[in-house]
């Protein structure tokens, strides 16, 4: 499971980094989105990878921390997703405005001279 997750994160980061260096604004948006997925998965993995464990602690029995999953990273990921979603949406609007004002979807607002 660790290997799958790390490979997945690595693939997302690799694609994301490549995409944000592309000259078209749409590619940059997709790159940022992929990177934020990778970061979210990474935060999630910081709570240690477990399977079929609940985050809710039953206080009636003696508590064994290894039998529960850490709820904090889950809460963090949720917040990060919401914020990332909002800012990406905002970025899309600016992207459209830039396309409308400059007439090109190049990140610098003009086509490179050939």
């Amino acid at each position: 499971m660790e290997l799958t997750l790390s490979l997945g994160i690595g693939l997302l980061v690799g694609s994301g980094v490549w995409l944000i260096q592309r000259p078209r604004t749409y590619q940059v948006v997709i790159g940022l989105a992929l990177l934020s997925y990778a970061v979210n998965l990474f935060i999630f993995s910081m709570g240690r990878l477990t399977n079929r464990l609940a985050p809710v602690i039953d206080t009636s029995v003696e508590v064994d921390p290894s039998a529960f999953v850490d709820p904090v990273p889950q809460a963090l990921v949720l917040t990060a997703i919401v914020i990332g979603f909002a800012t990406t949406a905002l970025f899309l609007v600016v992207l459209l405005a830039a396309r409308g004002l400059t007439g090109t979807d190049h990140v610098d607002g003009r086509e490179p001279e050939r």
Binding site: L32, L35, S36, I83, T87, L90, V94, A97, L101, D108
Partner: peptide, 19 residues
């Protein structure tokens, strides 16, 4: 808008680094 596009892209990236 041109400057803002760069500003937002850079700050989104730095937010990811922050996380």
């Amino acid at each position: 808008v041109k400057a803002g596009l760069h500003y937002i892209a850079i700050n989104l990236l730095s937010a990811l680094l922050f996380l």
